[in-house]
Design a protein around this nucleic acid. Structure first.
Lengths: 193, 193
DNA sequence: ATAATTAGGAACCAATTGGTACAATACACA
DNA sequence: TGTGTATTGTACCAATTGGTTCCTAATTAT
């Protein structure tokens, strides 16, 4: 009944996500964003409303794809021992080979820092993502212990530590710091499980 | 021989630091910055050159005052046990009572995330601050152990963990997350020292 | 075919951006 | 009390910001 869209919404959001991931929300201007999404202004405002909405959609996409696959990987006992999977978590998106200029950290972490205090939608989204990562770390840690009140408490603390480390490491990496030996560090925290 | 400055550079930088801390670099506009510094455009550009220079000076001030006092506190054995001092580190600037909208995290962490990849000066400054915090955490941990190659290696890992946690906690707090029980967590990491 | 409906794209917008120019001003020193 | 000099504040600037308008193009249902 009407003219169909010429662009693919998912492709456009992928481009937006990549650019926001690299440059942040405020430092991304509309012309660059349109280029990254490969659409023009008209289509942009027609389909998405405004810049902030696109950012939120890009963040949701990040949740689905990046956080989602990390969570899936952590829960997939066929993907290796739980320690192996925790190690894998800390190698995702941390590219120590990249020069400082090309490091983009973690979009969720960037979003928390840039927009957490000023945007409730972003704050809610990132809080949920935080919770889902922590929960799946807890589950992975739980695999080879029998549950008990005290044991669960310890594992919960450990999952908090690892989740906070996950975010801290992404933040720090953006200043060009070389990554520490995560395998050793994760073992020091979760090793006796 | 010439007209003297009417404003105090330190006071102005303090105002700039507070605003940058709260809003970040990009989201701070000149009119607001001038208001926070309590000077006018003329004085601003004459005395500081441009916005980025003020940011760098504010970051240096943060290093001197905030990071500096944290480092001093960590090294001050009269200020309590090393565990007490590590706990104190994690309560500085983390105000769980503040509503999400007023949380500002840690200026150094904010700077790494927002400007680390694009500004070498900021990256260098934050890297140095990171190193000084980690070093003083290491020293605090070392207080009640006798140094040896293997013991130092373990303490170094623990200092890396705690430093990364320090940054992660600040980032996460900006999304409104309630803080975990740091005392318990720090004890879990550094407790047997 | 044609009417209805939506996408696409260019021209346009006011507001805001960081930064500059310059005249008025206030002080220190002679 | 001048005179030199640096500060201050205002007026101004071009460029960029995110966003809107509106006309044309493309598609489908009738």
């Amino acid at each position: 009944m009407a003219r169909p869209r010429e662009f693919n919404v998912d492709d456009a959001l992928e481009g937006a996500m990549q650019l926001f991931w690299k440059k942040g929300y405020g430092a991304t201007n509309l012309p660059d964003l349109l280029k990254a999404m490969n659409i023009t202004r008209g289509s942009f405002y027609k389909a998405f409303g405004d810049k902030k909405s696109v950012y939120v959609e890009a963040l949701k996409r990040y949740d689905r794809l990046q956080i989602g696959s990390a969570v899936t990987m952590l829960g997939d006992s066929k993907a290796g021992s739980n320690m192996d999977r925790l190690n894998a978590l800390f190698s995702i998106n941390i590219n120590d080979d990249n020069p400082r200029e090309e490091r983009r950290g973690c979009l969720m972490c960037n979003a928390m820092v840039e927009l957490g205090p000023t945007d409730a939608t972003v704050a809610n989204l990132t809080s949920k993502m935080y919770a889902s990562i922590q929960k799946s770390i807890f589950s992975a840690l739980s695999e080879n212990t029998t549950s008990s009140t005290t044991a669960d408490k310890i594992l919960n603390d450990k999952s908090v530590i690892l989740t906070n480390l996950y975010f801290g490491s992404h933040a720090i990496s953006k200043s060009g710091q070389p990554a520490p030996n995560w395998r050793v560090i994760i073992k020091a925290i979760a090793g006796e499980n």
